[in-house]
Amino acid sequence: MRASTHTEIYRPFTGSLREHPHRWLTIGASSVRQGFKRKLPALLLFTPVAIGCVIACFRVYFRFQLLSGELVNINSPGAAGITMMVTETLGDVVANIITYTQSMAFFSLMIVAWYGAGLIAEDRRLGANLLYFSRPISRLDYLLGKGSGTFAFGFLALTLPCLLVCSVAAFTSPEWSFLIEEWPSILKVILFSGIWVSTITLLVLTISSLVGRKSHALIGIIGTIVLSGGVSAVLSHLLRENAFSLLNLFENFERLGEWMFDRWDSDREVTIGQTLAALGGFWAICLLTLAARVRKLEVVA
């Protein structure tokens, strides 16, 4: 038997509603909160990113420290040789950051795929779309909410570590030289990682909107990446036509990186214009598919 309490009466809401509530932000924040509820996947997925970030930070830190002579006395003949050798091994700081950004692309894809795959698929499976769309949100709010949630994971996986490495470089460089001389590179790194994370966010949400379960979406994402890479490689090899490499998302981003960081390989047969067109086409297909699928989520028969 249960006793009645004073709390079990209906209380009218006496407050007021916000005029501009940024509903998409609530959906995005809720997606991030739900994602981090499970600790083990977070630990497994973010550990390699964290390790990579720490290594990149140390490489940058050591290079500047060696160059400044604070670690060893570069005036002594032996030390100077060692310093030269180590700094050559460590490479250029900007190159280090670019390499780090590109090498972490795969891990960021895994993270975005894991956390974003279920965002739309599970909503449809569990009927959450009815709860969302019985609220005053537009389809754009919903899409921005899910997109911002997914993007946040990509940001944490790639853009934030890149910013950390750049910050270490800025702080350890003598007289803020890295910040003053290489600020365009810092902006390019942020831009490149932002474009990459946005692209994989679109891919993940598009596939999530097409299937009914998170597991199916994960298979779809991996399948799309593997299949597009495989088809591109096979067709390029069989037909001896490098234009087929435009089908490969990773290769497109490799070319985009080379172009953005002024490291374009002049032997490439595919131009940057073709690469940008391929990426633009990919974005257009994803956005159109998402628009159609989210409309179907709202307009339920």
Partner: peptide, 14 residues
């Protein structure tokens, strides 16, 4: 308007 749908509707994981 407050809407109570017919089927099982939940936001996943909440």
């Amino acid at each position: 308007v407050g809407y109570m749908p017919e089927g099982d509707c939940v936001l996943p994981g909440m």
